[in-house]
Amino acid sequence: MLLEDFQLQTLINEAEVYQSQGLLEESKEKYLSVLHYMTDDNRSSDTYKKLIKTVNVRIEKIEEDIADFEKIDETPTLSHDVQNLIQKVFSFSQTKEMAEVEGVLALAKFGQHEQALVEFHRLLGKGVAPGVVAKHILECHLALSSSEAAISQFNQWVANGLLTQDDLLDAQSFLETVLRDKGIETSLPQLDHTPRKKNRTRGEQRLALDIYSLKIQVDDHSEGLYEIDFDVTFQSNDTVSVVIPSEKKTLLDRFHLGMSLPKIKFYTPRAVFEGNGIVAEKTEIKIGPKKGDYVLDIKIKAN
């Protein structure tokens, strides 16, 4: 089919506008239509030949641009300011800690894995949602194409006791699945699969051992040195809590805030160990069946 000159000009005009709009495929299609009609035409004037050459050059340029777009780095490292902005505007939780996790997760989603790793480690150091954060740390390593780093990180956690057994098991399960999907064969450390006590929050647990009771030496001026056993009702991080009944208020009064407690025996499911502690808090229970009793918090000091 032969087109009038003005019709060709209309097609060229469309192609130019689409190119200026960044609609490269559409522009190329129009230029190809122009070529198609022109090559069907028998005219062989110099102007016509020149026009065909021009259109071919434009098509080449568009193809180069399309190829360039396909090669672009889709996860460029953003400036520190933009990274901070992402953390700020993509965190929605009301609680500060979860908002922080969301912000760092957004960084990772926008491809800023290096900075996300730094931030997730900071959160883990603060004891913020360790189970969740640990998995995101592994994800960041894996996104950076570093399976070895993810495995090494997991091994470190097994060794340093930063994560609870439950969190370690979760992280191990996650890592094993990902590695298996990637076709990577590796053997992660064997972990104890015994169910853990559930009376702790997924907060700041750095003490690897579960303490179920302790024996404290008490110095009574009239009776001298003697030992008392307490059941541990709660353990968080390196602090254990014991309950002292209201009728033993005089016993409670022997402990004052900041008091050093030497030679405490800590009983765990596997062993007994000895250490020191400091009286960290004394609180009266206000509600529940133990209302009127007292909670004594003891911060464990390493020997």
Binding site: G22, D65, D68, F69, I72, E74, V82, L85, V89, F110
Partner: peptide
């Protein structure tokens, strides 16, 4: 205004 673009002013992540 913050824009995170690629070549050709195509938005890569978002404008804010």
């Amino acid at each position: 205004m913050i824009s995170i673009n690629t070549k050709g002013d195509r938005t890569l992540y978002f404008d804010f």
